[in-house]
Design a protein around this nucleic acid. Structure first.
Lengths: 136, 136
DNA sequence: TTATATGCAAAGACTTTGCCGTTCA
DNA sequence: TGAACGGCAAAGTCTTTGCATATAA
């Protein structure tokens, strides 16, 4: 984590650097507990509350995004330049990403229908992956 | 709730009838606690665990659907014939529905890209509603 | 009658917070 | 040095579960 990610008055700490590296390199879709376990493996001096506090900070700063699949808990991923969406297998739980240039059109559609000024969105599709489809 | 909604061995109870009526008439997007409060107003002999147990049952039977906005808790709505999607105001929290025929195309797109057999999806857009946009 | 459902209270999973010692700038 | 941060444990919120009683069929 570089200083430029933070606002004045906020510090670059060992924990923050570590957590952001894990999220950015983690292949996306990590939950708080997974981030915590990976952080501990690299540095046992990290607590779960620090994980939550910093996930919340990173989120507010726009460095990461919080995703809501239908588990009880949240997943986090680094914010990247390219928008992408998620497809989850209801059988094995695997999540993969996809992109579609139609999503922009949906946003326009929705803005026209609802009068909203659209700022973002989540598109979560579910189904059966190639491995699980035959069993279903 | 009519008997035809249930499977053999499942009973039509006072509570189930009441809860399903609330969800079906509730304008959609109720959370468990709101359903509980409305149920209590109509019949104080209803417990929160009954609400959760039956939301889970209705969900398994496909009578209702569980939605995951970015609150900590879930929202439920009656399953209807027409698919629709949600737009939420990040400022006041209002949720309204929209339809778009593009969603079918996105599903096809995604299926082609990922190899999944797509069975459903949630499209949640966020932004500012007509009332809140000027303030933002 | 009897298996299913409910009510209550306790437990569980995930997340947030208070307090105080630590650390970055 | 001092304001921001982290660690720990306790508290909070939403949801699930165990068990004894009530009830639909």
């Amino acid at each position: 984590m570089a200083g430029r990610d933070l606002l004045p008055g906020q510090r670059v700490t060992r924990q923050r650097r570590l957590l952001l590296n894990i999220i950015r390199g983690g292949g996306g879709h990590l939950d708080a507990d997974e981030i915590y376990r990976r952080a501990r493996d690299l540095d046992p001096r990290v607590s779960l509350s620090t994980v939550y506090r910093n996930l919340s900070l990173f989120s507010r700063l726009g460095l990461i995004e919080e995703r809501h699949f239908d588990d009880a808990h949240h997943h986090y991923e680094a914010r990247t330049s390219s928008e992408h969406y998620h497809m989850r297998c209801v059988s094995c739980g695997k999540v993969i990403e996809f992109e579609s240039n139609l999503t922009e059109h949906i946003k326009e559609d929705a803005a026209r229908h609802t009068g909203f000024k659209v700022t973002g969105g989540e598109f979560h599709l579910v189904g059966y992956c190639r491995e699980c489809a035959p069993k279903s």
